[in-house]
Structures are given as C-alpha cells and as structure tokens.
Simulated assay, not measured.
Amino acid sequence: MMQHDGLARSRCTAPRDLPGTVVRVSLMDMGHHSMMGNRTRMMLRAAPATVSAGAVSFVATDLGSRRHELVVLPLESWQNFGQRATSPGGKVLERGALGEASRACGAGIGAGLRPGTTGWVTLDLAPGRYELVCNKPHHYARGMYAELVVS
C-alpha cells in the first residue's frame, strides 16, 4: 500500500490484518549541532513493551532521516539490553536473530527502511526477553535498542 504525499520520499503502511499482537516500533534519529561538532541522537521505541507468547507482528516505521532496520534478538537470562558488544564496523553480532523488518513497504529482510517507510515481520515468540535493535553501522551504540518481554 503505497501512498504519495507530494514529497520526495514515499510513505507506506503495514497490512491491517497482521496476525497476533502488534508491536509498533518507531526508529528515529535527530541531528544535534554544537560547538563540538555534529552529533546524532538515535532512538528505537516499541509499544507495547510486554506481550503474550505466540504470534507477534512487528511494524517498524522509520521516522528519521537515515535508513534503519529492526532485528529481533533473544536475550539470555544474564544479559542486559543495550549491553551487546559491537564490531569495529559498529554492528552487533546477529547470531541467533529471530527475524528482521528491513524491507521498505514490505515484510521481512531488505536493504533497510528508507525514511518515511514501514516494514513488518511476524514471529512466533516463546516466553522470555528479547532485544529489538537497529543494526545499521553505529546505530546500536547511539541508542537504537529496546527490550521486549514475552510472558
């Protein structure tokens, strides 16, 4: 479902009939200029933050000015969200990833969500803790992560 608003970027919405509980994820970056140079604050927000086990559909919308993505990673009982090590390239290890929403205006894996676009993925999640991350270079280290609790 593409909608054009007359701007240079396209907008789209997820299907209305996605299965299970829908978690809406906002991917944001805001530029900040100071005497020390440019700094970009990045955020990933998910609502709700607690869901029931079973089918969970993630609807990720890029509200920023850069490409973003959503990767769902399990958290071990001893892990804290936001504490994963990053590679020299600024990415976390995706081993064990359960799914990804990075196809602009579509489901699953793609090249990343363009600003103003939405992507989605549906997963069958067991009870536990999960970390939602943007794994574009250096985005995790700048704050693009959130915890999801599945009961």
Rank of each mutant, 00 (worst) to 15 (best):
V149A: 14
A53M: 02
N80P: 08
E100G: 04
L73N: 07
P74V: 14
G106W: 05
G90W: 09
T61D: 06
A47C: 04
D124Q: 15
A141F: 11
E147Q: 15
V121Q: 13
G116M: 02
A60I: 09
L63A: 14
R41A: 15
C105Q: 08
S57R: 00
Y130E: 00
M35I: 10
H68A: 05
T117S: 11
L132N: 03
C134N: 08
A60V: 05
E147S: 11
L98N: 03
A47D: 14
D124N: 15
N80Q: 15
A146P: 04
M42H: 10
E94C: 03
L132S: 01
A126P: 01
G37M: 06
S77E: 15
V56F: 00
D124Y: 10
Y140L: 12
L148G: 09
E100P: 03
L98W: 01
M42P: 04
H139Y: 14
C134L: 10
G89P: 03
A141P: 07
A97T: 10
N38L: 13
M43G: 13
R41K: 13
R95Q: 11
G112V: 03
C134Y: 03
A107R: 06
C105D: 06
V133Q: 00
T40V: 15
C105W: 06
M36G: 11
G106D: 12
L73D: 07
Y145L: 04
A60H: 04
T118L: 08
G90V: 11
K91E: 14
V133E: 00
A97V: 09
A85T: 11
S65G: 14
P137T: 13
